[in-house]
């Protein structure tokens, strides 16, 4: 039992009316996997939750001519089992496959993982590597921003309380991608370090590359110097090792209950190296 009132608008347009009616403030309820836990620990100042998990405007995974669109209320399980995501967004598919546990994957949504803005959020890390744009609506007014720009710090986003992420859009482009995480367990673990890499190669030459590292800074880390080092190269093991070292230099990890800063920094190197090798050295 949670001391909250859940309202369930039937359509997206009903969301804004419900938001206006909630005088004491509200939260959007999607998968509930963070919201309900926080509420149980007394971290819920809002007595109204607006359930957006069933809205069809936030559902669907579609493959357009130049875009892939994933509704923000799609679950991690739906995302990783989608053939379109597997084909066009390999790092995201892998992140969602390694996300939490099987029942949590059936609940947790892509939008929720993003809006909760944990630095160790696996799907959010992959979204950034996959160059996602977030489609956001406030009172029906729609804007598009780079998903990455939403993250300001641990659990802190650029979203205002009445900003609702409707969907994520990705350029449709053939590329390689991988997501690797290091947690305390092989499965069902919060990342100590994670790495998402997406790359396009032409004749073995890297022509686009995005590397993102999770759980090693207040927000998801982009090691730009490592990306730059490899761009335009036909990379071998040595170049990848150099890039991995730059990745380790780019992070600012902390000591906490899950790991130590020193370990995380070195693992940023090891995991980046493995991710880059998987993406750049594999023969396809």
């Amino acid at each position: 039992m949670i001391p909250v009132t859940v309202v369930q608008p039937k359509k997206l347009s009903g969301v804004w009316a419900a938001a206006r009616a909630a005088k004491g403030g509200f939260k959007f309820l999607a998968g509930g996997t963070d919201l309900v836990i926080n509420a149980r620990h007394g971290k819920n100042a809002h007595r109204v939750w607006i359930d957006i998990s069933g809205l069809k405007e936030l559902k669907g995974i579609t493959e357009g001519r130049d875009k892939i669109r994933i509704g923000a209320a799609e679950t991690a399980a739906a995302v990783c089992s989608s053939p379109a995501v597997r084909k066009w967004l390999p790092a995201l598919a892998q992140a969602c496959r390694h996300f939490a546990s099987p029942p949590l994957r059936n609940m947790a949504t892509l939008g929720g993982n993003c809006a909760n803005a944990s630095p160790s959020a696996d799907a959010a890390c992959a979204l950034c590597a996959e160059q996602a744009a977030a489609v956001i609506s406030r009172a029906g007014k729609i804007r598009r921003v780079a998903a990455e720009s939403l993250f300001l710090g641990p659990k802190h986003t650029a979203l205002s309380p009445d900003d609702l992420i409707l969907a994520f859009e990705f350029p449709r482009r053939a590329h390689r991608g991988v997501f690797i995480k290091l947690g305390a367990r092989e499965s069902f673990a919060i990342s100590k370090v994670s790495a998402a890499v997406a790359a396009e190669l032409r004749n073995g030459v890297v022509c686009s590359l995005s590397i993102r590292l999770g759980a090693v800074g207040p927000k998801i880390v982009r090691p730009e110097s490592a990306e730059k080092l490899l761009l335009g190269l036909r990379p071998g093991a040595a170049a990848i090792a150099d890039a991995a070292r730059l990745c380790a230099e780019a992070v600012s990890p902390i000591d906490d209950v899950r790991s130590t800063a020193a370990y995380r920094r070195d693992m940023a190197r090891v995991i980046s190296k493995r991710a880059l090798e998987a993406v750049l050295l594999k023969t396809s």
């Binding site: 305390a184 367990r185 092989e186 499965s187 069902f188 673990a189 919060i190 209950v257």
Partner: peptide, 16 residues
């Protein structure tokens, strides 16, 4: 006590 929960007190799962 910093980790009174089953996420950060890590038990073996079926995978271990």
């Amino acid at each position: 006590l910093l980790n009174p929960n089953m996420s950060d007190y890590v038990l073996p799962s079926s995978m271990e």
